[in-house]
Design a protein around this nucleic acid. Sequence first.
RNA 1: GCCCUGGUAGUAUAGUCAGGCCCAGUAUGCUCGGCUGUCACCCGAGCGAUCCCGGGUUCGAAUCCCGGCCAGGGCGCCA
Length: 427
Amino acid sequence: MFERTQIGKARESLDESLTIAGWVKRTRVLRNISFVILRDVSGEIQVTVKDDEMRKAVEDLGREDVIKVTGRTVSSEVANTGVEFIPDSIEVVNKAKQPLPFDLFGQVKTELDTRLNYRFMDFRTEHTSSIFKIQNVLLTAFRGFLTDRGYMEFQPPCVIASASEGGADLFMLPYFEKQAYLAQSPQLYKQMCAISFEKVYTITPIWRAEKFNTPTHLNEVRQMDIEQAFADDETVMKVLEEILVHMLVTVKEKCPNELEILGREIVVPELPFRHVTYTESIEMLQDAGEEIAWGDDFSKPQERKLTELVGKEAFFIKDWPSVQKAFYAMPYEENPDVVHAFDCIYSGIEISSGTMRIHLPELLREQLRKKGLNPDNFTHYIESFAYGAPPHAGWSIGLERLTMTVTGMTNIRECSMFPRDRDRLVP
RNA sequence: GCCCUGGUAGUAUAGUCAGGCCCAGUAUGCUCGGCUGUCACCCGAGCGAUCCCGGGUUCGAAUCCCGGCCAGGGCGCCA
């Protein structure tokens, strides 16, 4: 490949001969002069063409053609951005078919569905690229924070033999002469890792075969999970609030342009987050006139109402009724109807939930029976804790949902590069 | 799975309620021509739509009715 300077850098390197390359954003052909707005991932620059032969080449350029231009950047009083690129040669690398499937930079707004059909081009728009640049910073901040604190990244299997936590429906797939499923959670695997490696995390896809059709659900999402030994729910809640603030601060620091493009102002919640118990939450809602009883889950409007009542950007709801949480959630000794479980609400949406897990085989069997499940079907799981399992806890953040709240998107499909929903399997 | 709204050139929309003035208007895109530095360039001409699919009502359907598919929103389920 040819030597190339990124446009962002080329803009600052005045009067040096260099080669830039990228996509033609638009051309403006006048009587005696032509302009090409050239874009790459780092930015844009105006290429000003006066030479007749090169002007002929510019006339043939279309939007999104890929070209290579050798020349130099000069400061300019006429050009709006203060610099322009004077070419010595222009070479077409690859033409784009015209007309384009949608207006990338026009004033005509394209619907999400259309943009998703042409996602490869949608990535070139400021709007969409900002979302994924921010998502990337969230991911690297997450990894960086945990790596610095001695957590080990692990990779759980995505094809599993049976349901890991019940609840959601699983996608089935044939596995030679057996029946297998796509994992709905890395739950059992992270526990198995934590009881040996102590502090672990993973970023992994999970699948739910529910036929939901909402702006906040997808059938395939990415989870950011941690699991930690010698820890209870309070220990990992502290990790969660710290990592969340760290991720938000990092995005604020590294993505000011992207946030501005999206018109987003990040409010970093104060540490420590407020802890509200489930029981207190129910009382608050009841006092506000909501029809809800102890043991019920919060409806969507109730979750929003609660956020209003608590009045915090982020907070925890903890100590949930056993009936609302998975069988592996550790019950309180003095009140087994309540478990060491929590949800983290940020910006009015549940972005994370976690529990202290049961590490005692006999207690696990008892909880399974209470939930109407047969412990014999969970032998492998229960056995993992029979040979010296320390107490442990963990949580999980939905990557797309977190990206939604950070970028201010109202449809989760905006925050998945290639979303999988009830109907969409391509691209 | 339920409720509401929608589906018209590449894209985004007007027209649909009150069927015929619509072989479908506008913007943007695309093609061509003009324009002495533009910057959402400007100006002019042209191209592009079996009006989502199937059925029905009617002399006549983009428009009304039924079914399907798809999209957006609200809920349920779920995380």
